[in-house]
Amino acid sequence: MMELAADIIVSGYTLEERIGAGAAGEVWRAHYGDQKVAIKFMSDVPDPNGKFARSIQAEVQALGLIQHPNIPHLFDYDLQSTRRYVVMTLAEGMSWDVLIASGAAFNLRLDARLELLRQIADALTAVHQQGIIHRDVKPGNIRGTQHPMLLDFGVAIRQQEMSTASSQVGTGLYMPPLGDALDEHSDTFGFAIVAYEMLFGRHPFYDPANPPTLLDETRRMTTLRLRQHDWYAPTRLNVAEVPTDLRGVDLGRLEAMFVRAFGPRHSRWPDLEAFLQALRETVLTPENAPYLDQARPPKFDEGEALKQAHYTDHALAEHEATQHPNSPNRQRLFWSGLMVAVILFSLVWLLIMTHYTI
């Protein structure tokens, strides 16, 4: 098994330092001559169900199809060795989950944050145009403010595979309500949550005081909060919770933008470009212009509660909650079925023998 360490050379790439790690593998900063790259290595733990192998293969297949300046370029890969890997563009800068949770997002002007969102929206549109569903759009999978990158295609699939795909893949806090199909519209739903966070500095549905744990439980929370209008809607925030660079905005109109983005599939924005254009026209107004240079993080009642692990996990490698699900263990299913059959047969035989004995 390949041992990873600084200064080790892998297919001509010199490893520098590990910059991310997760259950599915680890990511290293490396260079090839003057070119800086990121290398994602598959985990070296046993992978009997092949989920780690499928994850890195999905990354290779997606990056090989998509050419976009805000998506890592695929340089090289090895899917045959014992320690499979993929080489891609190195994404520089802070992960957006850290950017939001730390309040550093408000060091950027509102128009600059909207421009970053536009670039990621354009990247996600390019993904969908190639017939690919990302399935894990969230701040932790976006990095950088100079040149933002949409990352982590380890659970991405082709659109034609959706009918047989598991619904237990993704990050629950960025998935649509229960009952919604998990397709390109679920990607855009996740993006709308990211946009809300970049504007308001908090998740629209998540309550740190009462966090859900299971994926379906999280989606059920989203469903109920939207149905009951029990979310952090802009018009329901107190003054301290509204970022200072939104103080001149018509919050009712801004809320309507997100109500549509979070609403039923058939009534959502036709595309991300239309959604972002509506946001720009709503917040970049003459009335709000005096506030654009006064950006300060809002103050929440939860205080430090937002800075939980969910918001500060900024590893580049896949989070355990977003891996491919395990494949069924056919041998285990066979023996379990056989055991059930034996037990049932024994019970029937016992009843028959008891009847004839009487």
Rank of each mutant, 00 (worst) to 15 (best):
L182A: 04
I358R: 10
T357Q: 15
M149E: 03
Q168F: 14
R236L: 07
L272D: 04
M1C: 07
L65T: 04
N107R: 15
D34M: 07
K138N: 06
M198P: 07
E3R: 12
M353E: 06
G64S: 04
Q61E: 11
L215N: 02
T282S: 15
Q57V: 03
A126H: 01
G252V: 02
I9D: 08
L114M: 12
L279E: 12
L284T: 06
V127S: 01
Q160L: 05
T223M: 11
H310Y: 00
H324G: 01
A5H: 11
S102I: 11
A23L: 13
F191K: 07
I56E: 12
T218F: 00
A317V: 09
L347F: 14
L347M: 15
H355R: 09
L150N: 03
H229R: 07
V194W: 00
F75D: 05
T244I: 06
Q168Y: 12
L15C: 08
E184F: 13
G103W: 07
A317P: 09
D271K: 04
S336I: 06
T322M: 00
L246W: 10
K138A: 03
R202P: 00
F300Y: 14
R280L: 01
D187Q: 10
W349R: 14
D152A: 10
L284M: 14
I193Y: 09
E241V: 05
L351F: 02
A91G: 13
Q119E: 07
L4G: 13
Q129K: 15
F334L: 15
A289R: 10
A58M: 09
P212C: 02
F75Q: 05
Y356S: 08
H324I: 14
L292R: 08
P298C: 11
P243F: 03
W231T: 13
T285C: 14
Q129P: 02
H319D: 14
S102D: 13
A233L: 12
G303Y: 09
L90H: 14
P212R: 07
H134K: 01
A315R: 03
G33D: 10
P290Q: 05
A91D: 10
L124F: 06
Q277D: 15
I157A: 05
P264I: 03
L350Y: 03
T14Y: 01
I352H: 01
E318H: 14
V242I: 15
